[in-house]
């Protein structure tokens, strides 16, 4: 799926839209990076309230589909720039992690 279609479908605000196609095979919700490292897997969507630059390193290492920052948290410019550099899509929403998870579930990601 193209990330812009994914963002539109879920009404998410793209901070960086990669031109690559994403493949979504699962979802992980978490804000503690070591636990995300251990539990999230390749092609997972990661839902978090963390906005620090290191979230991009975690997503890159795990080869996640994208990062969705919830609760309208302000994402630092250096995080967005790092996402561009490493080609990691990063999206934002004012919805909660639970609401986004429900939308992902309703869109067919089980």
């Amino acid at each position: 799926m193209i990330i812009s279609e994914f963002a539109k479908q879920l009404n998410l605000n793209p901070l960086f839209e990669s031109s690559k196609n994403i493949n979504v095979e699962g979802v992980y919700i978490g804000d503690l990076l070591s636990i995300v490292m251990s539990k999230a897997k390749q092609n997972f969507v990661w839902i978090t309230i963390q906005t620090h630059i290191n979230i991009v390193a975690v997503a890159e290492l795990l080869e996640l589909s994208c990062i969705i920052v919830v609760e309208n948290m302000e994402v630092e410019l250096e995080t967005v720039n790092k996402a561009k550099e490493l080609d990691i899509p990063i999206l934002k929403t004012n919805k909660s992690a639970y609401e986004v998870a429900c939308m992902l579930h309703d869109s067919g990601i089980k």
Binding site: S34, I35, S38, T48, Q50, N54
Partner: peptide, 16 residues
């Protein structure tokens, strides 16, 4: 506050 310090660093290293 940035999401580090979960107390899982060394345990993850050992577990994996």
């Amino acid at each position: 506050e940035l999401g580090f310090g979960a107390g899982m660093g060394l345990p993850n290293m050992k577990n994996y």
